[in-house]
């Protein structure tokens, strides 16, 4: 083969590579254009809210005793419901990700149900449940839920627990079963293997499940309006405060509360993403 032949064959071989390179560049440009439009729209919403507020709104909200009560109530109810969600999510997620049993598909669907139900339906369902015999029997034990703060925790728990279950189940599924098998051959019982191998492996997933449950509980609104109402200094939480503020025409404080919640939710999501290590939710 002469040098000329080599040069021409190299040039012809290079052509398809450069064509595919242009295609890849166009593909990348298209992707980033859509990404910028989408993220930009959400950023524009936030900027619009901030620009609509007056400078003193945030301070006003932080000084208002009713709103301070609502913030405190939001904090402890959401923490409690997130803790309950994690408490149930760990065993439920482990059972769903590790074992096959009759009716598993049905149980799996029931666990997911609150994710797809409109939140207001959860509120109505809870209200109806406590009018039935099992609900009345439960309230007969002394635990009152309807129109109470305990009801806020219950409604938040029902709505956020499935997200915690899915996050933790994803973490359990990612654990190589062989790690558990080897621990058993090394002399550990099944319970010890769960505590000493499986749980440390899913620590990030459990924290991520807790964070997402907490963030969602803070923002929950629909079922609370139906099931617990929103009475000042009794059952008012920040999400329902926004409604109350809007209903009496105080747009500035309503936006200020919204922006405080946005800041908190963004911080929670960043923590969640770091801990979940890029795993998808389900």
């Amino acid at each position: 083969m002469s040098i000329d032949e080599v040069t021409s064959s190299t040039a012809s071989a290079a052509r398809p590579v450069s064509a595919s390179g242009r295609g890849a560049a166009l593909f990348k440009v298209g992707l980033f254009a859509l990404l910028i439009i989408y993220a930009g729209f959400i950023a524009a919403l936030l900027i619009a809210n901030i620009s609509y507020m007056e400078p003193g709104n945030i301070a006003e909200v932080l000084r208002d005793p009713d709103l301070r009560f609502a913030a405190r109530l939001t904090l402890w109810t959401s923490l409690l419901s997130a803790a309950l969600a994690v408490f149930f999510a760990v065993p439920v997620a482990y059972a769903l990700s590790r074992y096959d049993f009759p009716g598993k598909a049905l149980v799996d669907t029931l666990v997911d149900m609150p994710i797809v139900l409109p939140n207001i339906v959860v509120g109505v369902t809870l209200l109806v449940f406590f009018q039935t015999a099992p609900g009345r029997a439960l309230e007969g034990t002394g635990f009152r839920f309807v129109y109470t703060r305990a009801g806020i925790v219950l409604a938040q728990f029902i709505c956020v627990a499935p997200y915690a279950v899915r996050t933790v189940a994803g973490a359990f599924s990612a654990v190589d079963k062989r790690l558990e098998d080897v621990a058993r051959t090394l002399g550990w019982s099944a319970g010890q293997v769960f505590r000493r191998v499986t749980l440390p492996m899913v620590r990030g997933g459990i924290v991520a499940g807790g964070v997402i449950a907490w963030a969602l509980a803070i923002g929950l609104y629909g079922p609370l309006m139906v099931f617990t109402g929103t009475t000042r200094q009794v059952t008012e939480v920040l999400s329902t405060s926004i409604y109350l503020e809007l209903s009496i025409g105080r747009i500035g404080p309503a936006l200020a509360i919204s922006m405080l919640m946005v800041a908190f939710t963004m911080a929670s999501l960043i923590i969640f993403k770091l801990l979940a290590g890029g795993q998808s939710l389900w």
Binding site: D176, R178, D181, T185, G187
Partner: peptide
């Protein structure tokens, strides 16, 4: 497995 006193090295070492 815990009561067998065996050493096990799986394919991926685990």
């Amino acid at each position: 497995p815990a009561a067998r006193n065996i050493g096990y090295v799986p394919q991926d070492y685990a």
